[in-house]
Design a protein around this nucleic acid. Structure first.
Lengths: 161, 161
DNA sequence: CACCGCTCCGCAATTTGGTTGCGAAGATTG
DNA sequence: CAATCTTCGCAACCAAATTGCGGAGCGGTG
């Protein structure tokens, strides 16, 4: 089967990939419409979607908001250095930072800094308060340095398939 | 109206915010269920959702995939320096980089580097090919430096409301 | 080649949810 | 207070989702 590509536990064929592309673009696309787009009747199309969900390929469906319209129009990238690298400090940091609602992304890094965090905020003051009241207070955080984007050129959740 | 908070063109009350929180978590929640959760009957609940969509507060609904299950389990952060800062170079870079499917996020930066890009790839080789065949070939790109996360502690699209 | 078994599809019936319009309730203003 | 505006809830209608069954297509074996 030349068009079958195997990833993890589930093989995705051409139709699966078309389904995924369509649903990444429009997560509320009606099944009838999706079926039409991928060239199946609604019933098998729905079954495939269910399979993709059950297999965890489709993780979830979300509403994507316009950040500015809910007062979180600014993004900041914060590099963080920890006091030590031991497992307890790292794990504690991870647990605490993940709890902060203004943190959208957090990565433990292999190079330049110990962690990289993307934070949303209303304005610079909002960010500064967040940093001093929440981020810098996490036990183990030694140093914090923030970079500010002037323009978000691209921000998508759509993975290439 | 003490619980009315105004952002941009549309005021969001407590019920709106509950709706947004629920739909950010589950973009395919049935309207009946959503209505139940926010304490309305289905009809006014649906009307509010429609208003939030039309006002652009809800930008879109998407399926979020598991990156590993479609063969893009690694993330790389690439800092880019451009040859010059003039508007033409910047605009050209922006246009070209936004076209690259493996680029999930791209920001023009105010400090450290000229641009920061988040790239998904299957493995290091996949990334290296992408960099040399696509990223570094964009006219105007002078230098490229990539950081590698060892752990994605948090990655969410759910904005704090 | 033919036959068999498995997988996936499509159709149709049933169930569930979305949509719409109207009257009522609640909130605001003079 | 009364009048008006805004939002809600109900119910009818329509659309879409879901499910089950039979059929079609494909692959493997003799």
């Amino acid at each position: 089967m030349a068009d079958k590509v195997e990833f993890n536990t589930m093989k995705l064929d051409d139709i699966d990939r078309r389904i995924l592309r369509a649903l990444q673009r429009d997560g509320r696309m009606a099944n009838n419409e999706l079926a039409n787009e991928v060239g199946l009747s609604p019933s098998p199309c729905l079954r495939r979607v269910k399979l993709l969900e059950e297999a965890g390929v489709i993780d979830r469906y979300v509403a994507v908001l316009n950040p500015a319209s809910i007062g979180k129009g600014l993004t900041f990238f914060t590099r963080i250095w920890l006091k030590t690298q031991d497992e307890d400090t790292v794990q504690h940091f991870a647990t605490e930072v993940a709890k902060l609602p203004q943190v959208m992304e957090c990565y433990l890094m292999l190079g330049d800094c110990d962690a990289l965090v993307r934070v949303v905020a209303a304005d610079v003051n909002d960010y500064r308060r967040f940093q001093s009241e929440h981020l810098s207070r996490i036990k183990g955080v030694q140093n914090v340095k923030t970079d500010v984007p002037s323009w978000t050129i691209k921000y998508t959740s759509e993975l290439p398939i």
